[in-house]
């Protein structure tokens, strides 16, 4: 159980970053930390003691495989996470070109 709680503390660290930071790049870093903790949590649920990677061999002996379903879901989620991160970074660089700063408070003050 301790490993689940550590994973959730990693999530909380990312959430603290998103809520407290004023720099757009650090907000993106916080979001990616949250994403990573979710991937780790799903991979942790799928693990089975003394299991092997889910690849069938032809020898026919009965092996214990780890759960392949969370792995298949995380596999798609990782690539989606990269695309969404890149989109956030694109918005950040566009704002930087207009306002010459990454600071959210200053962007709020400069109307127009």
């Amino acid at each position: 159980m301790i490993v689940y709680l550590m994973c959730f503390i990693l999530f909380l660290t990312g959430m603290y970053g998103v809520l407290s930071q004023r720099n757009l790049i650090k907000i993106v870093i916080g979001l990616s930390v949250m994403e990573i903790s979710i991937f780790l949590f799903m991979a942790l649920i799928g693990y089975i003691d003394a299991g092997v990677a889910p690849i069938v061999t032809q020898t026919g002996e009965q092996l214990i495989y780890v759960d392949p379903l969370p792995q298949a879901m995380v596999l798609t989620a990782i690539v989606i996470g990269l695309a969404t991160n890149a989109m956030l970074l694109a918005i950040a660089i566009r704002l930087y070109k207009k306002y010459k700063t990454f600071d959210v408070r200053k962007i709020n003050q400069l109307k127009g």
Binding site: S32, F39, A43, L44, G46, Y47, G51, V52, A53, V66, Q71, V74, L75, I78, V79, G81, L82, N85, A86
Partner: peptide
């Protein structure tokens, strides 16, 4: 955690990020 597929994807994706 015995997930080599995820490890391959993650190491490339992290570099690109």
């Amino acid at each position: 955690l015995k997930a080599p597929d995820l490890a391959i994807v993650q190491i490339v994706v992290e570099t690109i990020t």
